[in-house]
Simulated assay, not measured.
Amino acid sequence: MHMPRNGFKAALAKDATHYGIWAGFATGYAAEIVASLGYDWMLIDGEHAPNTVPSVLNQLQTVAPYTTAPVVRAVNGDASLIKQLLDVGAQTLMIPMVETAEQAQALVRAMRYPPHGIRGVGGGLTRATRWDGVDNYLNTAHEQLCLIVQVESRLGVENVAAIAAVEGVDAVFIGPADLSIGLGHAGNPGHPEVQERIKHAIDATLAAGKVSGILAPNEDDARRYQAWGCRFIAVAIDISLLRQSALATLARYRPAADTQAPSRTY
């Protein structure tokens, strides 16, 4: 059996913009709806959605027949958790709150087998190897794995050039919400200081020869970040879409109790 191809990693090598959607419901049924819509990629969120390794596995299995590529965000950079997520078949991982090149290097090691890393061998126990069905998996697994590091703090942006330069880091993803609050502008990623830091992070990532991504559900933000060079942009969040659509539908029949505009942060 051949190694399963990582469609997301292959797409990043092309000079095009790839539009994604956050999947936050933590169920295979909802994830399949999202995967059937035609987005280029989807983020199965293990940081802020109530996901566990078994629920991530369920969603990976559910969306496998679709062309939308799954990206799994871990709750943190713990090497043991990374091992589990890789073993259940995640091929693209996003790790939040990366602030130094040393952190990025440790994440690369967590995704690779010795002598180049520390990933433990699960062999026939793991979906990643198709239960020992993939030929030469131990020596070729890294070819289809993709590591996205998330830069979303003042320190992370200060170190973004060194982070992006780490061999084995495939892309840098900017988190406007955490960055804005860390800079003292809670809920306001449009603040000039935040925007300057985002632009700096994008420029530094591109200068390192890596791909830059960002979360931008607001269309004006998404188009600006695309013009700045972001190549994979999450332009929607499934939970937010449900809430906004439900409120808009109710408002057609009675005055809306909640008139707040959709947030630009998420």
Rank of each mutant, 00 (worst) to 15 (best):
76 N>T: 05
98 V>N: 12
242 L>A: 11
152 E>C: 05
231 R>G: 09
198 I>G: 06
191 H>L: 09
74 A>E: 10
258 D>P: 01
172 V>P: 05
31 A>M: 08
129 T>D: 09
13 A>I: 03
84 Q>H: 10
247 L>A: 13
140 T>S: 15
106 A>P: 00
150 Q>C: 02
15 D>H: 06
262 P>I: 10
87 D>I: 02
224 R>T: 13
171 A>C: 10
119 R>N: 12
105 Q>V: 05
37 L>I: 12
197 R>C: 06
7 G>V: 09
233 I>R: 04
194 V>D: 13
15 D>S: 11
200 H>M: 08
22 W>S: 01
77 G>V: 04
215 L>F: 12
260 Q>K: 15
240 S>P: 00
209 G>Y: 00
257 A>D: 14
92 T>S: 12
265 T>V: 14
124 G>I: 13
221 D>K: 03
218 N>W: 11
133 G>P: 03
225 Y>L: 09
147 L>W: 02
133 G>W: 07
242 L>E: 02
131 W>R: 13
60 L>E: 08
40 D>L: 04
57 L>I: 02
115 P>I: 10
184 G>L: 06
213 G>I: 00
101 A>G: 07
254 R>V: 10
31 A>C: 06
29 Y>G: 14
50 P>A: 14
137 Y>S: 06
235 V>Y: 06
16 A>M: 08
245 S>W: 01
18 H>A: 06
231 R>A: 10
131 W>V: 07
102 E>P: 00
185 H>P: 00
101 A>D: 12
131 W>Y: 15
141 A>Y: 04
136 N>T: 07
20 G>I: 06
26 A>H: 03
22 W>T: 01
67 T>M: 09
195 Q>R: 13
265 T>E: 13
79 A>K: 11
248 A>M: 08
168 G>D: 11
210 K>I: 03
201 A>S: 09
159 N>T: 02
238 D>Y: 07
197 R>G: 06
150 Q>Y: 02
108 V>T: 11
141 A>L: 07
165 A>I: 01
255 P>D: 15
220 D>E: 14
60 L>N: 04
7 G>T: 12
79 A>M: 05
103 Q>I: 01
223 R>L: 14
254 R>C: 05
71 V>P: 00
158 E>V: 00
4 P>M: 12
233 I>Y: 03
210 K>P: 03
